[in-house]
Design a protein around this nucleic acid. Sequence first.
DNA 1: AAAGATTGTTAAAAAATTGAACAAGTTTAT
DNA 2: ATAAACTTGTTCAATTTTTTAACAATCTTT
Lengths: 208, 208
Amino acid sequence: MNPSGISNSVIKRLPRYYRFLGELKKEGLARISSRELSARMQLTASQIRQDLNCFGEFGQQGYGYNIELLQDEIAKILGLDKPQNAIIIGVGNLGRAIAHYINFEAKGFHLIGMFDAKESLVGQMVRNVPIRHISTLDEFCRENMPHAAILCIPKEVSKEICDQLIKLGVKGFLNFSHYDIALDHPDVEVENIHFGDSLMRLSYKLSN
Amino acid sequence: MNPSGISNSVIKRLPRYYRFLGELKKEGLARISSRELSARMQLTASQIRQDLNCFGEFGQQGYGYNIELLQDEIAKILGLDKPQNAIIIGVGNLGRAIAHYINFEAKGFHLIGMFDAKESLVGQMVRNVPIRHISTLDEFCRENMPHAAILCIPKEVSKEICDQLIKLGVKGFLNFSHYDIALDHPDVEVENIHFGDSLMRLSYKLSN
DNA sequence: AAAGATTGTTAAAAAATTGAACAAGTTTAT
DNA sequence: ATAAACTTGTTCAATTTTTTAACAATCTTT
């Protein structure tokens, strides 16, 4: 069990609930029962009720759940209603794609800066956010206090930047590098996305 | 337990073992014991021995593991020694970044094609692979038999393309879209990467 | 006011994961 | 050559996690 008292598998499922509820809303539906939702999501109704019950009582007997209301509640649970400032470190192909591709506001974050070591990139705007030189990171963080950093840099430079960011008060990382942040900094929240690992697992599954 | 008889958590750890062994090799080391490796990876020695024992006996009493040999064995387990043909569907910011950023050959795949619906992209080369028009997908697949597809397209078009690809014999997906492939096609191998979900989980962790 | 539906909650069952222990076999040092 | 020090593969038990089933309480609908 987590420090929070909520198991990891529940937390992992939350964004999916959020997404499905968004779709139901789009379909114009107003209410849904755990049984209907379970059929759609390929879960058991029991599991859905239990998952939600970790955080409160959002349904009504005989009625089910109000879709919009439940989605809002899950948004609150996920903290989406209080966006946190985030910066992107590394604006190569990946960093740039992330900046373009992701709707940060809808995922609980507000992108306030991008940093790279390449002088030629400095000053460029991506989605109204300017690329700054990595040497200005300290100053920027002291002034703007980002909560989270998205690491789109190679493993080799990750440790140094991480140390720096953590000293500056950054508490969370979306980590695309293969540097093991959590191992060196157990006090910090990390979400890892490792394309390579995912591909290797796919390779495994296809080979066996 | 999996069809294969190997638990998911073991499979999830395999790429990390592979990476760590690669680093040890780079450091010029030739052998390592489960205890040393466990200290580096923040696991128990027992777990490492048990994980490896799922696939065979790769160590020697009193000696430990030969690093290069063990890495090779894990490569074989992951199927990295027999690269599978892969295609990228959707060459927007994300697809392009993936194509540039990932060393497919090192992860068990061989990138043989990229597809997009935008005429203006057709003919462009990315890493020596040409972008083709999505209308030529059928023909291409029948001739080249890709095993895996990397979906860098929006949810709305994913279902249709998936159906098409599966009919054409594609067995594995690296899925960046929010379409639930596994739900409609339980017979197919899928690795999901959902940036949005990861960000929301990070938001949750930072808010609680 | 009765019938039907569905939640929140509890408790049990099942499954997965972890950790400790040790015989058997290797290596290293003397 | 021998003994001491290591380290694996493997087993077993313990723990934890996850899932499922069940039902009283309560709401909705007719």
